[in-house]
Design a protein around this nucleic acid. Sequence first.
DNA 1: GTAATACCTGAACCTAACTTTAGGTCAAGC
DNA 2: GCTTGACCTAAAGTTAGGTTCAGGTATTAC
Lengths: 145, 145
Amino acid sequence: MYSIGQVSKMFNLPISTLRYYDKEGFFPYMERKGGIRVFTDKEIESIRVIECLKESGLEIKDIKLFFKWVGEGSSSYGKRKELFENRKKALEEELRKLSRIHAMLEFKCWYYETAVKDGNEDRINKMLPNSLPDDIQKLYDEAHK
Amino acid sequence: MYSIGQVSKMFNLPISTLRYYDKEGFFPYMERKGGIRVFTDKEIESIRVIECLKESGLEIKDIKLFFKWVGEGSSSYGKRKELFENRKKALEEELRKLSRIHAMLEFKCWYYETAVKDGNEDRINKMLPNSLPDDIQKLYDEAHK
DNA sequence: GTAATACCTGAACCTAACTTTAGGTCAAGC
DNA sequence: GCTTGACCTAAAGTTAGGTTCAGGTATTAC
């Protein structure tokens, strides 16, 4: 059992955010002792799920919906399964995008490393867009496809 | 040479966003023909850089700063190199976080697949937190570390 | 000659996800 | 007995990153 302050430190989330999540209905079974919130492992796990769904790109209003389904019991297992499958697909798409972004960043690191060495961009510009060193060309092509 | 409408379709960005980027100073060398914006390959490459920096987590006001540096010429190569190196590090950190999120999503997919099959969560709860099937246990541990 | 389409501007507006504020309770320490 | 610290509430405020609006120009299509 944890106080709101302990949970705040545990997840590095502001207390105000935890109270906001509570107001949104994300801790449907949380109890109070004399008006004060008591977080248990159930709520800790809920926070992990909230963070997970949020990072996967889901909006707060849809996370709300998920917790409504949880409240509906076993009849919503199917819906919940589908939600996670869709989130997994969406995250995988996002990861592919970020991989292209990463190639661009690596290319740019090489670009400016070379520019610093040369004092100008002339030599680089002569190599663009098709005569870059092999490994750099791969990054460039990945970033520009 | 492209019109704002063509570029909008090319990148799947609203025209209003391109005008907003222009207002923020992201196309410092863009010309006008009779008041109308003319996008060249230079601007196309700028958009790629904007998207790249944005996706890496940089705020618009800092992307603005980058374009200011570009305007200052070769004296800012060092700063620009550092910016991209820091963005690369930040993105790599983000990718590690998303990899943990992905493990959580895969675990939850298994969880609800099993719950649907069983009609309840009893069998799963007996396996938690240490006696899950090997491959699932790995996902669970990754998501909860 | 008028209708549709693509472009333009500055200013007002919007939205999500918090965060801050103002005011209050309660227990512990000195 | 008073100050400090941790908790509480409802309601107002904030911020980034656009988006929409009202009103206008210029070109092409019929």
